[in-house]
């Protein structure tokens, strides 16, 4: 424990902006308790998790297991009540102020009065980038999500899948090293979801970003991830962390292979076990 703490200290001292070159997220003994009228709710309890640069990490678990809350803690949308967390070697708040991450919500959350290009430009305007730089980043990121040609459309003119792609382009336009995604494809049908999963993997390979992805779909988690974190509810805690040995370069066909099914099986077992005390 001491060794661990001192190792962490040296990390903090070594670099001011990013800690160890590989450690993007470092969570130790983190807990979050919501005080409600019905007494305290332990949304997160004693979470330990390390995420390395270039990882694709999925949080999977049933509703109420705290997977979204954990993502929101990383994004500084919630404050933990105990424990330690660092993002890029600094506190989540500093990381947010440094615009270290892009966040993709469950819904596209595009502003209806802005065209798609203007929606992608939103964070860039807030960052105060020059018009030329904005144009450049809009074009680049719209192309990355295959939305070139839809710049002048309004959100309601696009399908749900296209809207979610636009919101991914918006998150990418910040050019963060870290992409936080909260069930981004949860509201889409399975065919669109498969397609977007494949595109997301290509995007990840192309940009080499670290992705933290919340889902409640086992195939989605296994297909996308290099590391799968299984959470279980009441109190929200990590039940299992599975390092996937699937090749990084994968296509949808991989879902039929025994390796894939083996990992999916372990995830399913984890979800079952984490739930079993209930019913």
């Amino acid at each position: 424990m001491n060794a661990l703490a001192s190792a962490k200290d040296t990390e903090m001292v070594e670099t001011t902006t990013s800690a160890s070159p590989n450690r993007v997220i470092d969570i130790e003994n983190l807990s979050l308790t919501f005080e409600t009228n019905d007494g305290p709710v332990h949304a997160l309890s004693d979470i330990d998790l390390k995420i390395e640069e270039g990882d694709f990490v999925s949080f999977i678990g049933p509703s109420g297991c705290g997977k979204t809350t954990l993502l929101r803690v990383i994004a500084d949308l919630e404050k933990p009540t105990a424990g330690h967390i660092s993002v890029n070697g600094v506190s989540p708040e500093e990381a947010r102020l440094n615009r270290a991450y892009g966040y993709v919500f469950q819904a596209a959350a595009l502003y209806p009065w802005r065209t798609i290009a203007k929606n992608v430009a939103l964070p860039l305007e807030i960052m105060g980038l020059s018009a030329a730089e904005q144009r450049d980043r809009i074009a680049r990121n719209m192309e990355l999500v295959n939305l070139t040609g839809f710049e002048k459309k309004y959100p309601w003119q696009l399908s749900g899948g296209m809207q979610q792609r636009a919101s991914i382009a918006r998150a990418l336009a910040v050019e963060p090293d870290l992409l936080l995604m909260d069930e981004p494809f949860g509201a889409l049908d399975e065919i669109v979801r498969d397609h977007l999963n494949e595109q997301l993997l290509q995007l990840w390979a192309k940009t080499n970003k670290t992705v933290v992805f919340v889902t409640h779909s086992i195939p989605e988690a296994v297909f996308l991830s290099t590391k799968i974190v299984v959470l279980c509810p009441r109190p929200g805690r990590i039940y299992d962390v599975i390092e996937s040995d699937l090749p990084r370069d994968r296509s949808l066909d991989i879902r039929e292979t025994p390796e894939f099914l083996k990992i999916a099986h372990r995830v399913r077992e984890g979800l079952k076990a984490g739930h079993s005390y209930e019913d």
Binding site: L77, Q106, A107, Y111
Partner: peptide, 20 residues
């Protein structure tokens, strides 16, 4: 969600007012 989005961008209250 729209307000959270502004928060993740570390937008000021003035920016959140004008843009959202």
């Amino acid at each position: 969600m729209h307000m959270d989005l502004m928060h993740t961008y570390s937008a000021t209250r003035l920016q959140a007012f004008w843009k959202l």
